[in-house]
């Protein structure tokens, strides 16, 4: 695979987040924080309007876009900041852009800026990845 600075890729990574999606991620990851599956706790204990998705679900979906684009074992680094909560009903789109490409021992290493946005265009995670191509 060849990439150059300015190349972009975009994919809808989840449509209309359901509580079932969140619960499935809780089971797979082991993160059973009730803020992510118990509306009573989310509303009464923490003052949120409802449960919300694990940040790591958003990051995992963002990572899926990267491995779909670049390959299952291409990533060398992947880091994000969580910028907004993801609520049931949200639809997320991940956008990646190549910001640098360098040669490392004959291998092409790309730096990719990545952002995942909700249906309002607000970013929910922002970060950067490095991939060997």
């Amino acid at each position: 695979m060849q990439l150059k600075v300015g190349d972009t890729h975009e994919a809808v990574v989840i449509e209309k987040v359901a509580r079932t999606h969140i619960v499935k991620y809780a089971g797979a990851s082991g993160d059973f924080n009730p803020l992510h599956h118990d509306d009573t706790v989310a509303q009464n204990l923490a003052g949120y309007p409802s449960v919300f998705a694990h940040g790591m679900l958003s990051m995992g979906l963002t990572g899926r876009m990267l491995t779909d684009w670049l390959g299952a074992t291409a990533l060398r680094k992947f880091g994000v900041r969580f910028t907004k909560q993801v609520w049931p009903g949200d639809t997320l789109t991940t956008k990646g852009e190549v910001t640098a490409v360098r040669d490392e021992g004959g291998k092409q290493v790309a730096t990719i800026r990545v952002v995942t946005v909700n249906q309002e265009g607000e970013s929910v995670v922002e970060g950067e990845a490095e991939a060997v191509l």
Binding site: D31, N33, M56, M59, T73, K77, F78, F82
Partner: peptide, 20 residues
């Protein structure tokens, strides 16, 4: 440790991949 009950939130997460 990845968020928390009540007031804790997960702010950032970073990985470096050295070996599959």
């Amino acid at each position: 440790g990845g968020g928390g009950l009540g007031r804790g939130l997960h702010a950032e997460q970073h990985y470096e991949y050295h070996h599959p």
